[in-house]
Simulated scan of single mutants.
Amino acid sequence: MFERTYIGLDVHARSIVGCALNIDTGELTRSCFEDDLLAVSEWVQGFGPEVRVVYEAGPTGFGLARHLQAAGIDCVIAAPSKLLRAPGDRVKTDRRDAKILASMLALGEVTKVTIPDTEQEALRDLSRTRHVASIDLSHAKQRVNAILLRHGVLFHGGKSRWTREHLKWLHQQHFDDPALEFAFQESLAQEESMSVRLKRIDKEVARVAANCRYTEVINALACLRGFSIVGAFGLATEIGDWTRFTGATIGSYLGLVPSEHSSGETRTQGSITKAGNTYARHLLVEAATVHKRPYRRPGVQELRQLELVSPATAARARQGNQRLHARAVAFDDRHKMPVKARTAVARELAGWCWSLAAPLQEGRPMTGR
C-alpha cells in the first residue's frame, strides 16, 4: 500500500477520471469510472488511510465530496480560478487535469472551496431561483418595451413605467397586423406571468427567511440600506459562515478589490478582480446604489427592521448607514466615476455586513470595526 497518496479527480456528469500520486515513489495510478460514487470511494480506499482527494468545483456540485467525506476520506474541492497553469500549456485532457490536481494537492497549492451542507445548499438554490426569476422578468419587460419602441408607440403618462397607470395603458394598445398583435399580446402575457412568478417566490423566500438557521443574520443585514429581506437572505446564504473572514478579507473574497500588476518600482492597479461569489458581489453592488440617495434619519421600513435586532446591532447598522451615505456623497462631490464609486461603496458595505453578521455567529458582543 502507498504510505502517502494524493488523488486528483476530473469529474464530469457521466464520467470520472482519477489519478493517484505516490509522493514517495513518484508512481502514478490512473482509473476511469462511470457515474458511480461507490466505485470511486472503493478505489480511493484501496490506497490506504493516508490519502487525500481533490477535484475542481463545477456544475456537478458537492455530492461526490460529501460521499467521500462520509466514507472517512479527506476530500477537498479546489477553486478553479486559483489553480496555477503555465502560460504555454495548451494541452488539456481529463487524464492530464487529474494529474495536475494531484500534484498541486501534494505541493499544498490548492485553494479550497468551502463545502456547504445540504441545508445551506437548498437555501442557496432558493435564493438563486429568485435571482433568475428577477432577470426573466426584466427581459420580459424589455421585450414589451422594444416592440412598442420599434413601432413608435410611446407612453406619455410620466417617466415611471410598469406602474398601474402604465399597465392599464399597455392593455389598451393594439396593432392592425395580426402577427404583430399576437407577438405583442404574448410578450405582455409573459411579463404578467413572470411578475406573478416573482411575487410567489418572494413570498416563499420571506417565509423561509423568518425561520431558518440564518434568520438572525438576515434580520441584521436587512437593517442596512439597500437590503430587503430577499437581498439579505441571498447574501446570508451565499456567504454562510462569516467567521471565516475579517473586515479586511471579505472584500477580497468577493472580488471587490483592485487587481494589481507590480514590478520593481512600478505599481499598477486595475479593475476589480471579480473573484469569488458572483451573485453575492451582485447583491452588494446593487445595494450600494441606494446609499447615494438622501439620508437624514431612518425611514419607517428601516425602523421596523431595527426593532427586530438587538440594540447593539441596531446601533451598528445605523452607524454603517450614516458612514456609507457619507462615503457615497463624498465620491459624488469629487465627481468620481459612478461605477467606481458604486464599487468602492460596495466594498465597504461588505465590511459592514461582516461586522454585523460575524459577531452574531460567534455569539460575541458587538464591537467596533
Rank of each mutant, 00 (worst) to 15 (best):
H282L: 08
K336Q: 10
D136Y: 01
T268L: 13
E302A: 15
G88A: 07
R14T: 07
L221D: 00
L308C: 13
K99R: 13
F245G: 03
G88F: 15
R164P: 14
K112A: 14
E42L: 10
V300A: 13
D89K: 13
L64V: 14
I100M: 15
L101T: 05
S262E: 13
R128I: 07
V17A: 04
E3G: 04
A79D: 14
T246K: 14
V11R: 04
T367P: 01
D125G: 11
V91H: 12
S310G: 13
A287W: 02
V290C: 05
A315S: 12
R85F: 06
Q301K: 12
E186L: 13
G157T: 10
C32Y: 02
R342N: 01
S193P: 03
S271W: 07
K292E: 07
V113A: 08
D332S: 15
L224P: 00
E238I: 00
G157S: 08
Y6K: 06
L324N: 05
Q361M: 11
R161V: 10
Y55N: 00
V329N: 01
A236S: 05
Q190T: 09
L37T: 08
R334F: 08
Q190S: 10
K92E: 05
Q305M: 07
A344Y: 00
L356N: 01
D94F: 05
R128N: 06
F33V: 02
G46W: 05
E348P: 00
A65H: 14
G26I: 15
N145D: 14
Y55T: 01
Y279N: 11
L349E: 03
H261G: 03
H174D: 10
G226K: 03
E192I: 06
Q305P: 03
D10P: 00
L254Q: 03
A288W: 00
A275T: 11
A232W: 00
L349P: 02
A86M: 12
D74C: 08
T163C: 06
K99F: 10
L38S: 09
H174L: 09
G63P: 01
E192V: 08
E50N: 14
D202S: 14
R200V: 10
V208F: 02
V196N: 09
A222V: 01
E362A: 13
K336W: 04
R297C: 15
E3D: 15
R52N: 09
A102T: 06
E109S: 14
A20F: 09
R213F: 04
A57W: 04
Q190I: 06
Y295H: 13
S127P: 00
A315C: 05
L68S: 15
I147H: 01
R130T: 05
G251Y: 01
D89A: 12
S252E: 15
V153R: 10
A106Q: 09
L224Y: 02
K159E: 12
R213M: 06
G368Y: 12
V132I: 12
Q120P: 02
L170W: 14
H166L: 05
R281A: 04
L101E: 07
A341P: 03
A146D: 06
R85P: 04
G157P: 00
G231Y: 06
H139L: 11
E165S: 06
F182L: 12
A312Q: 12
I100H: 15
S259I: 07
